[in-house]
Write a protein that binds this DNA or RNA. Structure first.
Length: 410
RNA sequence: GUGGCUGUAGCUCAGUUGGUUAGAGCGCCAGGUUGUGGCCCUGGAGGCCGUGGGUUCAAGUCCCAUCAGCCACCCCA
């Protein structure tokens, strides 16, 4: 949880605007769903034994006795909305994105907050490998548009319900033989989620997983073909990626294609985005037998990576320094007229010395200052000062000043 | 949930073995220019020293608790 204000908010606006533009270019429509959902939704979709559900969700009973949770991720809510609104009845595929806050009760640290914001994209109703590739191409495109060159895309395929059980069993057998090397956590999850052992950072577990079976050896014909097609299209699109057989997702619902965008400079929380295919989830939530794929992307983490840009801090086009009550009233009126015309105009509402007003104009980075006192109002001519280094000033006519400025800026 | 570190002015921080009135830089306000910003000079405002309790003649300083933040584990975006 964190307040985002003045200079930093510009970065957020830039990121969100860029995301909306890029997602739009790929045919995605925005969707907003509630932050609060029935707890059961997350139990069914994310999986009851995941850490997120077991110990990280903000869950409470409301006055009617329903168990509600703040969403820990976006996919479940989007799919719920998709099913409840029968969006699937329209011709697909359906490409949806959402931007908003998620909540997980974890110990905060760099790049990890209890309320954090995600960009989230989902494609429903398309099984083909092309959407998998398209989604990653889009993510890659977004990262580049944000100016992030050093983000690595890592790709894997987790297989499907046909081929994963055999792999799972092979993993369990493999690690059973090396039980003494595994950490406590891995011993515990060896049978519930053996894939996770591959991802463990403990030295013993890393060593133990040397030579472990790889999922690719167990892919069924369909999964193998799907994965090859995805990689082929990624290559054709010029996306640089790394295949990593150890890439595993933390949520139960993922199958086949999974991917992650990894960035340096974020400390331990180096995943900027992560996602994958979740065949069967839609049906599980009461929809048709339809498959989907999506990813989530952490806004705070993006913000840590995106460089500041000068263009975000541009000040007003004009600052009116008015001296005295009447000139100030005049300026108040003129400012409105010019703002309606599209100019960025500012002034001070209090009676301050010209010096103080000049200082203010300089501080907020106004491009120019119009100095108006009683004499200027009388004569209809005032000084327009250019606030750039040299600071030259010209006498201008007050009549039609707004239009003249607009023409000049156009 | 576990471990480590940090909370003093708007911001970044200093504050000696516990000892008068808690400091600096930056920022802010005003003046140095009768109506002209940046640079410079002068002055000023601004502190429940995170919160609560304890030890002591005396606590920003020592002890306990608590809250918040950061970093790491874990987990994830």
């Amino acid at each position: 949880m964190k307040d985002v204000l003045a200079p930093e908010i510009h970065k957020w606006q830039f990121i969100e605007a860029t995301a909306r533009r890029v997602f739009g270019a790929f045919g995605f429509e925005e969707i907003k769903t509630p932050v609060l959902e029935k707890t059961e939704l997350f139990l069914r979709s994310i999986g009851e034994t995941t850490d997120i559900v077991e110990k990280e969700m903000y869950t409470f009973e409301d006055r009617g006795g329903d168990m509600l949770s703040l969403r820990p991720e976006a996919t479940a809510g989007v799919l719920r909305a998709y099913v409840e609104n029968k969006v699937y009845a329209q011709p697909g595929p359906h490409k949806l994105f959402t931007i908003g806050p998620m909540f997980r009760r974890e110990r905060p640290q760099k790049g990890r907050l209890r309320q954090f914001n995600q960009l989230n994209c989902e494609v429903l109703g398309d099984d083909g490998p092309m959407v998998d590739a398209e989604l990653m191409v889009m993510l890659d495109h977004l990262l580049k548009e944000l100016g992030l060159e050093n983000v690595e895309l890592v790709v894997n395929s987790l297989g499907c319900p046909q081929c994963r059980p055999a792999f799972r069993q092979a993993l369990i057998d493999f690690f059973e033989a090396k039980k003494d090397q595994l950490c406590e956590d891995c011993l515990r999850r060896l049978h519930s989620n053996p894939l996770r052992v591959l991802d463990c950072k403990a030295e013993g577990c890393k060593a133990a997983s040397q030579g472990a079976p790889e999922i690719s050896q167990y892919h069924c014909a369909d999964c193998a073909e799907h994965f090859e097609a995805v990689k082929g299209m990624l290559g054709a699109a010029g996306v640089v990626y790394k295949q990593d057989a150890r890439l595993v997702r933390g949520l139960d619902y993922y199958v086949r294609t999974t991917f992650e965008a990894i960035a340096g400079g974020l400390g331990a929380q180096n995943a900027v985005a992560g996602g994958g295919r979740y065949d069967g989830l839609v049906a599980q939530l009461g929809g048709p037998e339809e498959n989907g794929i999506g990813f989530g992307c952490g806004l705070e983490r993006l913000a840590l990576l995106v460089e500041d840009r000068d263009q975000w801090h541009e000040g007003p086009d004009l600052f009116i320094a008015a001296l005295g009550a009447e000139p100030r009233a005049w300026a108040f009126e003129q400012a409105q007229i010019m703002r309606r015309g599209g100019l960025k105009v500012d002034m001070m509402s209090q009676d301050k010395s010209l010096k103080a007003q000049m200082r203010r104009a300089n501080k907020i980075g106004s491009a120019r200052v119009l100095i108006v006192g009683g004499d200027e109002l009388q004569s209809g001519k005032a000084l327009l000062k250019d606030m750039a280094q040299d600071g030259g000033q010209d006498e201008v006519s007050l009549e039609g000043l707004g239009r003249a400025l607009l023409r000049k800026l156009a």
